[in-house]
Design a protein around this nucleic acid. Structure first.
Ligand SMILES: NC(=O)c1ccc[n+]([C@@H]2O[C@H](COP(=O)([O-])OP(=O)(O)OC[C@H]3O[C@@H](n4cnc5c(N)ncnc54)[C@H](O)[C@@H]3O)[C@@H](O)[C@H]2O)c1
Ligand SMILES: NC(=O)c1ccc[n+]([C@@H]2O[C@H](COP(=O)([O-])OP(=O)(O)OC[C@H]3O[C@@H](n4cnc5c(N)ncnc54)[C@H](O)[C@@H]3O)[C@@H](O)[C@H]2O)c1
Lengths: 206, 206
DNA sequence: AGCCGCTTGTGAACGTTGGCACAAAGTCGC
DNA sequence: GCGACTTTGTGCCAACGTTCACAAGCGGCT
């Protein structure tokens, strides 16, 4: 479930706030979901809440972390260090969530060697070696759409089994490989769709 | 439905490729979905495919565009011009999908006046005026998580009714406002979760 | 013109997800 | 120690999304 990750993030802030236990009700509010749904989600991981009190924040965090598999730090490679790639490479949110950037790669010779917050942009030739050496299982694609499938194939061939794709392209992969895509334009169009609906509703009222 | 936007994008490439009609089967493959699902999606917009032939690409594009409300160019404002904000501001994908960036805003005085591909970073003081003047209905938040709710409130107060949030924070809003969030860490954790499952499955086989 | 094959549109079955509501269980106060 | 209150865990149902399967409709071919 996608919501587990959100719970984990909220629990993080709560732990920083010094709270040691929390009820499903409160956590559900903070995460923006129904409390019953939250309890059902947690019940998938086993039952370890204390009735009448709630959940111990630390225990819960650890349990969810284990389930998500972020206890052992996973390595990711980032391919395509353009506009977006730079932002991702410079983003601190990777490390704090249990992910390590094992390498930055780009096809453009001029970018190779560039240093971004401690990491050096590498040539695509080194991709296979780095993936094998650091046993990378996740690849992030931030290249233009035309190159996405090609890069994807290379990543899969090198042993990557999960891909996060920012390019507006549909990737075809073996079914042992998981692909998630983030498409800004799609998100905006969905919002636009709702705007459209709102406007239509308004007209209907008049 | 979120998939309409994907269909539209795929149709765009197909139109560039010179194709004039397409069957649900082919379009479904290109978009990575089931053909029955695609037909059902399209049937929501009315029935205008030709049996035995398929859909006329141009008609379909126009119909979906109208439905998504991207025919009239929508304006968006972008708040928080840091790492990510720069990438977004410099991204060409907005204009080509029917969105116009009406303004870039940041709280940091040092960023104000900065020029990013033809757009000038403005002070937050001008936010309300720009939103009103250009009748902006969509706001994009790329500030740190702490500032997200505050910025969100300002956007809503100024008249924005749809928000795309990149900050890892849960926003609370009136229910006339739509919020979509893009959270990189959550995406990675979901992939990590599947990796975990794969590893567990592997162990079960042994 | 009539038949044939292809493709759409949709009804019905299915699995999944979300939400209510309540019993079980544990804590806190007295 | 006991009762009352709080909160979890879950059974049940409704709604939604997905998939299959097929009849109806259209174009092309003869
Ligand atoms: N910038 C954004 O805000 C944004 C938002 C959403 C989606 N996207 C998408 O993300 C992708 C990247 O966007 P961008 O703005 O960073 O583009 P960009 O052109 O700035 O960067 C693309 C990078 O990919 C590299 N590249 C090209 N072909 C490659 C290959 N075969 N192998 C390895 N590297 C290769 C290029 O050298 C370049 O550095 C695009 O598909 C874009 O549509 C960008
Ligand atoms: N960089 C990434 O790849 C990435 C990926 C996913 C999510 N995010 C999230 O996106 C957000 C921005 O990331 P970033 O890397 O660009 O951070 P950043 O620190 O580089 O940029 C944040 C910008 O927001 C501005 N800002 C701060 N408070 C503000 C306010 N109250 N009003 C207006 N502007 C304000 C700052 O001046 C700064 O320019 C963060 O929440 C981050 O977690 C970033």
């Amino acid at each position: 479930m996608a919501r587990l990750a959100v719970y984990l993030r909220v629990l993080g802030s709560l732990a920083d706030g010094g709270l040691s236990t929390i009820s499903s009700e409160a956590l559900a509010n903070a995460a923006g979901v129904n409390s019953a749904k939250l309890r059902k989600d947690l019940s998938y991981l086993g039952s370890f809440g204390t009735r009448g009190v709630g959940y111990v924040v630390e225990v819960l965090r650890e349990r969810i972390s284990t389930c998500l598999g972020v206890t052992e730090h996973r390595s990711v490679v980032l391919v395509g260090i353009g506009n977006l790639g730079h932002a991702l490479a410079g983003y601190g949110g990777f490390g704090s969530r249990g992910f390590r950037i094992a390498g930055l790669f780009d096809a453009d010779e001029r970018r190779i060697g560039e240093n971004i917050s401690g990491l050096c942009v590498r040539s695509m030739d080194e991709l296979d070696a780095v993936i094998a050496r650091e046993s990378v299982s996740i690849g992030v694609i931030a290249t233009p759409a035309d190159a996405a499938q090609e890069v994807c194939d290379r990543l899969v061939a090198a042993g990557v089994t999960s891909i996060l794709n920012f390019a507006p392209a549909v990737l075809v992969v073996t079914d042992i490989v998981d692909v998630r895509k983030v498409d800004l334009a799609v998100e905006l169009q969905i919002l636009s769709f709702h705007e459209q609906r709102k406007a239509a509703g308004l007209k209907a009222v008049l």
